[in-house]
Computed example of a mutant assay.
Amino acid sequence: MTDVLLSIQHLDVSYGHGPAAAHALRDVSLNLARGHTLGLVGESGSGKSTLARAIVGGLRPSAGSITIDGTDVGSARGRARTALRRRVQLIPQDPYSSLDPRRTVGEALAEAIDPRRAAVRRHRATIVEWLERVRMPADAIDRYPHEFSGGQRQRIAIARGLLIRPSLVVADEITSALDVSVQAEILALLDELRHELHLTMVFISHNLAVVRRVSDEVAVVHHGGLVEHGPAARVYAAPTADHTRALLDADPASPGFSLA
């Protein structure tokens, strides 16, 4: 891997202190090349969402390091930290809770472009371009989040996460609350955008069938540890970890997807 954008080395994350500390992640190490998508799979409580929060700077590691494009996430301060927050964008599981119900879609996207001068008029052309890019009508710019379905709000969240062209995108369970047909549409859109924009992305899910659709490589987290990491085709065809095999056996393809 010659052009590493994300490097995680011997990462530990604990909640609490002393003997009562709960270890959410233990000695996690992986690298992700620029332009690749990593599918991060794990059951509820496995540590995958903790890892996502650590990557975007929301949690300080107990040990180890996370480096993004040469910047250490844990030690970044001041302007470096502000710049890093722009370069790493989180697309959340629930876009409704992350979209201010009092602000129009245009205002939400304008704020993403320029937090200090979130003027819709100034950025209207860019906002409309991105709405159309995620298959939303241009008039969505003047409407409010409650006027849209869950799938449409997720499209808006994707546009908001990508329109500033971040170095790294973290998509955290973004299809888990959607029905299968809408999941398929969102995954197809995301797959198209990641190739078109050469995205570097960490795509988090508990659903192996979903992860396969959009990932170049797969990492499996279990009880806070990384039990498997490799090219997606190899992991699905010949998993080396017992837990990965158990997940594959226990998670037959949902309608509309295939593990075959």
Rank of each mutant, 00 (worst) to 15 (best):
A159C: 11
A219I: 05
V169D: 01
A219G: 13
L208F: 01
I204T: 11
E217K: 02
N207K: 00
R213N: 06
A209G: 14
L226S: 03
V227D: 08
D216G: 12
V235A: 11
L190Y: 00
V169Q: 05
G230W: 06
I186Y: 05
V180G: 02
L197K: 09
R212F: 07
E192L: 09
I186R: 12
E185R: 09
N207P: 04
G225L: 01
A159G: 11
I186K: 12
D242M: 10
T175R: 04
R160V: 08
H222Q: 14
E228D: 10
L168T: 02
R165W: 00
G161V: 07
D191N: 15
R234D: 15
E185L: 13
A184C: 05
P231M: 01
S167Q: 14
S205T: 15
V220E: 03
R155V: 09
T200F: 13
V218H: 08
H243E: 13
D242Q: 14
E173M: 09
V221E: 07
F203Y: 13
I174W: 04
V218Q: 08
L162K: 01
Q183P: 04
V214F: 11
V170M: 07
A238H: 14
A157C: 05
L226N: 05
A171G: 09
V235E: 02
E192Q: 15
L168S: 05
L189D: 07
V170N: 05
I204C: 09
S167N: 11
L199E: 00
A233D: 15
A177T: 07
A157D: 02
L199K: 11
E192D: 15
S167D: 15
E192S: 14
